[in-house]
Design a protein around this nucleic acid. Structure first.
Lengths: 171, 171
DNA sequence: TATTGTTATACTCTATAACTATA
DNA sequence: TATAGTTATAGAGTATAACAATA
């Protein structure tokens, strides 16, 4: 019974990746930027994002959409407000996000039995099937990003990022 | 300017404001996200961005503005189109960016002698003065982000990010 | 013809606040 | 009163396309 919202993204996002970001333009003095951890993270993030978007173009999946699919898959019937908390966005922001995934046939809103205000989010069968492929594609992109790292270096990088970001996993 | 790392005792207290992104919400299964380098970079980027924005609120400086100031300072008379290339944005995007910095009295557009189409970008006196303080603030934020890392770990992290992002000296 | 800076336009993303229907 | 989802609205950020002046 959700009223149809007019959405321009019926034809899904166009990444429009023209040129690639050059993190180190020749002839340019980057000054203090080269010594800042924050700028290093930003440079890396742009590179990772570029490959991610390009790789997932066939599915029109953006990072927030991907994160949502994984979180919903691993936490069935999660409420929208909790998904917002996980993603770090306002709860109003998940509405168009879920709208897009629902229109793509990947996610479904199901009424909550115990709380008539709430909706549980679950993947559809198609959502589960697509997600398997999407995850494989993302993992390939991730490994491409890490192709110059040894297994030890990869683990070390994950560990150090965890210490900075405050999400240190298994230490 | 070779920016040297200051002692942790010089690190300013973290600016506390509003809600913060929780990179690891309790009770949530993050599935494959926990194993992805891309998601680790994203989580870290959000944390770094939060502290950056909060720290520089007094100057209303955003990451692109900060990068622009540093690049213009270190590369006087740089053309707008080249700044766009360094920042990785469209050349039309630098117009409002420079507009803002010019209105703040930090940057000036100067006609190019050899090419009447082009404009050289330079810092004003105020721009140079403010930038010194801004850089100190950014470095304090950066050190706060790295407060759980040893000097060796910091260098290792910078090195590994450079290998992933493609901005490190050849190894 | 190509390039520089600019304008016009549009779209994505996200935030705040208010509304509704429940609790 | 408080909460979950939604709507309305606004702002930042960036993209494409077209334009005038210049190369």
């Amino acid at each position: 019974m959700s009223p149809k919202r007019t959405k321009s993204s019926d034809i899904l996002p166009a990444p429009a990746l023209g040129e690639h970001f050059n993190p180190k333009v020749p002839g340019i003095d980057y000054g203090v930027l080269d010594a800042l951890l924050g700028y290093a993270v930003r440079r890396t993030q742009i590179k990772v994002y570029e490959d991610f978007i390009t790789s997932l173009e066939p599915w029109s999946i953006t990072p927030p959409r991907f994160s949502s699919l994984v979180i919903i898959d691993r936490n069935p019937n999660i409420k929208a407000i909790e998904l917002a908390r996980v993603l770090g966005i306002a709860r109003s922001g998940v509405v168009p996000l879920i709208d897009g995934l629902e229109e793509a046939g990947l996610v479904r809103r199901v009424p909550c039995a115990t709380d008539k205000r709430a909706l549980g989010l679950v993947l559809t069968d198609k959502g589960r099937e697509d997600l398997a492929q999407i995850i494989a594609t993302v993992q390939a992109s991730d490994q491409r990003m890490a192709r110059h790292l040894s297994a030890d270096e990869f683990q070390q990088l994950m560990h150090l990022l965890g210490k900075v970001g405050g999400f240190s996993p298994r230490t």
